[in-house]
Every structure is written in structure tokens, then in C-alpha cells.
Design a protein around this nucleic acid. Sequence first.
DNA 1: ATAAATTTTCAATGTTTTTTGAAACTTCGG
DNA 2: CCGAAGTTTCAAAAAACATTGAAAATTTAT
Lengths: 168, 168
Amino acid sequence: MKLTDARHQFISNWGAFGTHWGINRTMAQIHALLLISPDPLTQDDIMEELNISRGNTNMNIRELINWGLVDRVLIPGERKEYFSAEKDIWKVVTQIVKERKKRELEPMLQLLDRLEAVEGDKKDPQVKTFVETISSIKKLGKQADRTLDTMIKAEESWFVGALLKMFK
Amino acid sequence: MKLTDARHQFISNWGAFGTHWGINRTMAQIHALLLISPDPLTQDDIMEELNISRGNTNMNIRELINWGLVDRVLIPGERKEYFSAEKDIWKVVTQIVKERKKRELEPMLQLLDRLEAVEGDKKDPQVKTFVETISSIKKLGKQADRTLDTMIKAEESWFVGALLKMFK
DNA sequence: ATAAATTTTCAATGTTTTTTGAAACTTCGG
DNA sequence: CCGAAGTTTCAAAAAACATTGAAAATTTAT
């Protein structure tokens, strides 16, 4: 397979993959493009490569920066801004986990805390089932939260090593 | 908080949560409703409770059945079909992991295998960066694949215990 | 300070996804 | 076999989400 085809396939599949995980296609594609680009790119490079508008490009680059997956790079003597993606995949995963934990898991755990305190007779099957469901989700969620915290702090080598040992 | 409010809040938030993870709102809401219902429900119960149409209800129940999260329950002497969700949250997570692995991770790994075999001079920075990116994603993906396989086979108690030990 | 270059914003538009509801189909009791 | 009850399908409508592009804002060089 030729590089050009391979690059296109990667970008397009990475985009489709993103949509299954609640990430918009363009954002995932820009990320893919930057991941496989040896040097930083400008907004115009990205627009041209992916055939998308200036506005769209701009918004999604900013979103990637918010997620901590892309950095602005200043090239001395150049007026334009350049962008580059973190290439270390372990750091990428860590960063995504960190953000999703903060944006989704933590608010969900707060909600569950509130819901667990529902009024009512514990002998009522509706109340009983509700409380049991909420409690068990909360329990699992808290466990996940702790596990992810440790993972975020961990080094890749340590993590992979530990996993290999753990899951023989 | 009253049970009715708590139920509504849970259903609505669980639905919103789903949309951040590539799961459609209604599917997540039906799942939430069944999780907190002590007894199996009919299609009509669900339609009424969530204020959704018959077609929508039917499609999403079937999808939940495909995912292995909901079962048809036959009640002797009743003509209608009843539905109930698996209540053991560990089993729910295991089942979701299993399906997403099959539907998403495995096809992605196959793609990466093909892309890694790109033609071209490894000294060309474009080729070099492409191959390195693909390889490192593949490596992480394969690791995840193995880890998830083990997790799927594991018992909750074993898993939680192992994690606690692992992440002190 | 000016103006050219660049970036950002956002209302309008386009696209994709979800939902509806009525018709077609299936199942089952008599 | 018939008809009522129940389930499924799917084209059309609605809603949600993404994209465009041109105008406004900002930045920088002179």
C-alpha cells in the first residue's frame, strides 16, 4: 500500500472510530493527521489536507487543545501558528482518560450520591431496587475512579509490565 | 428526594451519559428504566414511562437484546412479551466491553496491521512517523485487547481484589 | 497609527441521526 | 381458518449535530 492511501485510510477510519466514542469526526481526523505528521502543521495545511472549512478547522483545533492533545507551536520567524499532536500514545490515552473522568465520571458519581439518598420505605420493591441499582453502580464507579487515578499517575512501562504480570 | 424524581433524574442523566459514549439516548434510557424496575416490563410500560413511540421502543429494545443487556421474559398465561435487564453491574460492564471489543477494537487492530505494511523508504520522515504512530497504537491496542479478554473471563471479586492489590 | 495577515466567531445551512406512526406482518386462541 | 392482540418495519418528519463562510476581532510588522 502506498503512503498516501495509507494516510487517507488511517485518517478516515480514525474519524469513524471517534464517532463511536462520542467524538466528532473532524476532531478525530485532525488529531489523526497531526499524529502522522512529522512536523507541525498550520491551519491552512489542515484545511487543505482534510478539505474542511476554516471555521471548522479552527474550532476543532481549539477543542483538541482543550483536551490537551494538541499544542500550539511557535516557529521562529513565522507569522502563522503551527500545531502538533502529542505523539506518545500512552500520554494521549492518559490525557483522554483524565479529561473524561473529570467531565463524565466525576459528575456521574456526584449524581449517584444524591440519588442514593432517596426517601421511602426500603421494603417497597421499587425503592429497594432503585437503591440497590444506584449503590452498585456507585460502587463500581468509585472503583473505576480510583483505578483510573492510579493509571493516570503511572508510567507506561510500569503499567504495561504490571498488566502483563497480572494477566499472565 | 422522592422516588419518582430520583427515577426520572437517573433515567435522564443515564441517557445523556450514553450520548457521550456513542450510545443513543433512548437506548440508554430504556436500559436505565429496566435497571431500576423490580419486575419485567412490557413494551407499553416502557412507551408510557418514557413517552416514546412504539417503533422507537421496539427498535431500541431489540438493540439492547443484541447487546446482551436485556432479556425477553415470558410470563406464563400472558400474551405480551416482557423485558428485563441484567441487574449485576459487573456483568453489564463485562458484556459491554465484550461487544465493543468485538465491534470496534478488533476491526481497528486489523486495519492497523494492514496499514503498518505501508511501502516506502523508512528514512522518509513521513513514512517513518506514519509507521511509528501506527505501530505504537497497535501495540497499545493489542495490550488492551489482551487485558480486556482477561477481564471478561474474570469474576468481579477476583478483578476488584486484583486491582486493589495492583494499585495499592 | 496603519494596514496586511491571521485567527475567531456565529448565524445560516447542510448533514446525520433519531423518532414517529401507520401499515404490514406474525402469533395464537377459539 | 379467522380475527384480535401483539410485534416489526420503514418512509417521512423532526431533532440534533456539524460545517460553512463571511464579517469581526486580533495580532504583528513597518
